[in-house]
Computed example of a mutant assay.
Amino acid sequence: MLKDEMPLYIRIKIQIRNAIIRGEYPLGSRLPSVRELSAEFGCSLITTKRVYRDLSREGYILASQGMGTFVHADEQKIAKDKERLVTEAIVQAVEFGNRLNYSADQLQVIFLNALSRLP
């Protein structure tokens, strides 16, 4: 399924979850209210409530009535998710290289060259 074909609530959920994983919302930080999130994405309150409900069930956030919604994911979960995201990106790059007819050895050289550019 293409990203544009995904339901809006899934796209919003992925965006918030990835922001948590990247550290844009650190552990314990307060997330926008349901109303603020709804206004930001131009969607219904029902959509944003569903996003927060799903993220809560997945263990990323904790909603406290009257207090707000806070990042609650543990460091182990975040580390595992970071690894998953990097692995997915590498797999996509390898598949792209494969479509361009690069061999495994050529892709390895490209990967090692990319690594050598890191600070």
Rank of each mutant, 00 (worst) to 15 (best):
K3A: 10
K3F: 12
K3V: 13
L8D: 10
I12R: 00
I12A: 07
K13F: 08
K13C: 09
I16N: 08
R17H: 04
I21S: 02
G23Y: 00
G23R: 14
E24D: 12
P26H: 02
G28P: 03
G28W: 02
S29W: 00
L31V: 03
P32M: 01
P32N: 03
S33C: 07
E36K: 03
S38I: 08
A39C: 12
E40A: 15
E40S: 04
G42E: 06
C43L: 06
L45C: 13
L45P: 09
L45M: 15
K49E: 11
V51C: 04
Y52S: 05
Y52A: 05
Y52G: 00
R53I: 02
L55T: 03
R57Y: 03
E58Q: 12
Y60C: 06
I61S: 01
G66Y: 07
G66L: 07
G66W: 06
G68N: 06
F70W: 03
V71H: 02
D74A: 02
D74T: 08
D74E: 07
E75T: 12
Q76S: 15
I78W: 00
K80T: 09
D81C: 07
K82W: 00
R84I: 09
R84S: 13
T87K: 13
E88T: 12
E88N: 13
A89C: 09
A89I: 15
I90E: 07
I90G: 05
V91K: 08
V91S: 10
E95L: 15
E95M: 14
N101G: 04
S103D: 12
S103I: 09
Q106C: 01
L107V: 11
I110E: 04
I110P: 03
A114W: 11
S116I: 07
S116M: 09
R117K: 14
L118P: 05
L118I: 12
